[in-house]
Design a protein around this nucleic acid. Structure first.
Ligand code: SF4
Ligand code: SF4
Lengths: 157, 157
DNA sequence: CTGAATTCGGACCGAAGAAGTCGGATATTG
DNA sequence: CAATATCCGACTTCTTCGGTCCGAATTCAG
């Protein structure tokens, strides 16, 4: 429950890996898969999804592979999840869908929708660039930049 | 992905319903189930879970049923989810478990753990009482109280 | 004391989704 | 042409979720 898909997980890892290697024109799916031990075939399809949604640029043929379509800080974790797992909602009553039949009688769907938006906001505030910068354990002094990057999320239920 | 279990969903609804009827000493599982159209047998087990985790007080026998164990504003949505679905983590690498075998090579588990904490914080800031107050569509003027109740969640990645 | 109402606890099952595999088609380069 | 890639869909396997069923134990009213 409330768990991220492993595919999305892999997608984030791959994207981060690509962000860390800006020098190379393109990295093949197998390259990334081997770097982490992810099943190659599975990662391949994930990267395909990401390209289809405009997060990556692909190039077939020899010396082909994938590269970021935009700057690493222009890609949010939210987009990645959205591209891989489709539109997400923490409850089963996605706006416009017919998933939950007791939507009319339900009294908590509205407040839960706010929670959903809050979580989405959190995900949107995280960029691939943020993931690539993995040295904060002791560097918490420059709160100004961090705050600017991730913002504050106010939950007004 | 990232979806709340329907059981947790039902649990929140039931808890909210109980919070809205403080006059009655106890409400049976069937009462609550009928009020919303939730499968009675299923809700029964959910309520059992909630009692086992100290969120509800049960009373068997005729005129028995369930009642809140604490004040509605002392019960957070986080606790409810925790009681029903067990410890939650947005990724598969729960601290101490052996779910994901590529934990050592993974480089994003640490930042994702922060995201997890942030979301947990959001859930913790929501009480059953908050859910029961369902008239905000036009009443957003008193931001002071709302802000005090739900707080601000800062994501310091 | 008897019986209805109600909680309790586990086993069970079908449907859905997630993780991963396979095979083949297509594009690019050398 | 051959090697390397992306591309794309179908397929299997595994787990979880949602839900049901049944057989207790508990409590209270008459
Ligand atoms: S309608 Fe209510 S019960 Fe159904 S999914 Fe949405 S929130 Fe959960
Ligand atoms: S270790 Fe990395 S890949 Fe495995 S679950 Fe945790 S975050 Fe996802």
């Amino acid at each position: 429950m409330l768990k991220l898909t492993k595919k999305a997980d892999y997608g984030l890892m791959a994207l981060k890996y690509l962000a860390e290697h800006p020098e190379t024109p393109a990295l093949s799916a197998k390259d990334v898969a081997d770097a982490y031990g992810i099943p190659a075939q599975l990662l391949a399809k994930i990267l395909q999804l990401l390209t289809k949604n405009g997060l990556l640029r692909s190039h077939a043929g020899m010396n082909g592979g994938y590269a970021l379509a935009r700057d690493a800080r222009q890609i949010s974790a939210y987009e990645v999840i959205l591209a891989i797992d489709g539109p997400f909602f923490i409850t089963s009553c996605i706006k416009g869908a017919k998933s939950c039949e007791l939507t009319p009688s339900c009294t908590i769907k509205e407040p839960l929708a706010r929670v959903n938006d809050t979580i989405a906001g959190v995900l949107k505030s995280i960029s691939i660039q943020d993931l690539a910068e993995h040295e904060q354990p002791a560097a918490r002094a420059h709160g100004d930049r961090v705050q600017a990057a991730h913002g504050l999320v106010a939950l007004t239920l």
